[in-house]
Design a protein around this nucleic acid. Structure first.
Length: 392
RNA sequence: GGCGGGGUGGGUGAGUGGCUAAAACCAGCAGACUGUAAAUCUGCCGCCGAGAGGCUUCGUAGGUUCGAAUCCUACCCCCGCCA
């Protein structure tokens, strides 16, 4: 599985490339919509294609619990099961070490989970996680990693880095599927020394690509950007770099300019379902009273099905009524917005105008207020951290 | 006409002497969401005030009481049943 760099931006670290997979080429930088349970919520594979999707993400842990890896394998693999013929990237379940912290126990051997569905116990080891991904048949498999919440101390993060490295080794050794790429995952929290160290160690293991994990777990953006910058600078230039779980427009632009090639995130699709829509000037909450009778499209310059056919007032109405179409139309718009942003960035990198594009984007796009964001996130994060430490 | 039940904040509806500016839910207003336990969650939601705090409320009018949405009296409405 090859990765070819086509063009590097002269005055930023942005790069344009081409990722070859057995199921087609993926131009980078790329955003992979999240389809945790073998579906990008509310969309069909045809919708995804029409939006310009080139790769989707699915989750090993969730599919293992339901419907079961065996079921998918028996039915001909994940592509056939979900009707998506393009490349698929499978996450290992490492993120669930973080998000389901209170339901698991981590040891060097792996993760003992209690199912969030029925409470039954399941053990996910580096080896089993690789064999599950092989059975699913994804183009890119991720190693199992331990993803600690923001705010953990240096020693805790160091320990999870070491464990992640141990697991990365085991994953590498137990992987025997030549058609499937394996990416290692850098951890290290917001500690730049640990990030450098982790990137260094993993680079020596010669993975097909490298992921930056453990970001967007509650840290402020001022801390996330240096992490990306430092980690990307240590990773081998010739291999794809994948920033896991990042997908807000402002973060995508900042991360691309720091040399990231691959992204995935539940953000665009999730906020869509909750009435948050992306526009060139920032995020908009369509349920707000001000949209009650707004006749123009939510994002008049957007070429998506939603914006071409419906007014903001109509979307507002659908959300107020909790009509199912609301979720679908909003998801279509947000994904198109993000995918279009990605291809625009790629064009600019190729043309050599990326830097000025970034500047005009930053000038126009107003992100959600960081103060309010972190305040809201505070309680959640504290709980998350407590669960994480308790689970040891 | 008689008997019984009831009138609580925009709505539904708890509350039967102080812990009640008054539960809960809905509606309304605003916000968050980043490798998805999320069509979820959070805050506000009588009036004034940035806040501390102040003021006015539980059909209406009186009364009892240190203290009333809660007890008493009258009146006005509503709902059942009987004539």
């Amino acid at each position: 599985m090859r990765f070819e760099l086509e063009k590097c931006c002269p005055d930023t670290s942005a790069r344009a490339g081409m990722l070859s997979t057995p199921r087609g080429a993926v131009p980078t930088p790329v955003f992979a919509p999240v389809g945790t349970q073998a579906t990008v919520k509310s969309l069909t594979p045809d919708d995804l294609t029409a939006l310009g999707t080139t790769m989707v993400l699915a989750n090993t842990y969730h599919l293992y619990l339901r419907p079961g890896i065996g079921v998918i394998e028996k039915l001909g693999g994940l592509h056939r099961f979900m009707g998506w013929s393009g490349p698929i990237l499978t996450d290992s379940g490492g993120y669930q070490v973080f998000s389901l912290a209170h339901l698991r126990r981590v040891t060097d051997e792996g993760v003992l989970f209690r199912s969030h569905i029925d409470g039954s116990e399941h053990f996910l080891s580096p080896a089993s996680c690789m064999s599950f991904q092989a059975a699913l048949g994804s183009e890119i498999a991720m190693t199992l990693d331990e993803c600690p919440p923001y705010g953990s101390d240096h020693a805790t993060i160091k320990a999870s880095v070491e464990r992640t490295h141990l697991w990365a080794n085991k994953c590498r050794e137990s992987h025997h599927t030549p058609d499937q790429a394996v990416y290692g995952i850098v951890q290290g929290g917001t500690f730049l020394d640990l990030r450098r160290y982790s990137a260094d160690v993993l680079a020596s293991l010669d993975f097909d690509g490298y992921a930056i994990g453990g970001v967007s777990v509650g840290e402020p953006k001022e801390l996330m950007y240096p992490v990306i910058e430092v980690t990307a600078s240590v990773l081998p230039e010739s291999k794809p770099r994948y920033l896991m779980g990042v997908g807000s427009p402002e973060d995508l632009v900042e991360a691309v300019s720091r040399g990231v090639d691959v992204f995935d995130s539940a953000l665009p699709t999730r906020i869509a379902r909750n009435g948050g829509l992306l526009t060139e000037t920032g995020r908009v909450i369509i349920r707000n009273a001000s949209y009650k009778d707004r006749d123009e499209a939510i994002c008049p310059t957007c070429d998506c099905y939603t914006c071409r056919n419906f007014s903001a007032a109509y979307l507002h109405h659908l959300f107020r009524c909790e009509e199912l179409l609301a979720y679908r139309l909003a998801t279509i718009h947000n994904l198109r917005f993000v995918l279009r942003l990605m291809s625009r960035m790629r064009e600019c990198i190729v043309e050599g105008t990326f830097r000025s594009f970034r500047e005009s984007f930053v000038a126009a796009y107003r992100p959600a207020d960081e103060g309010i964001r972190l305040a809201q996130k505070g309680k959640w994060l504290e709980a998350q951290r407590r669960k994480f430490t308790e689970a040891f």
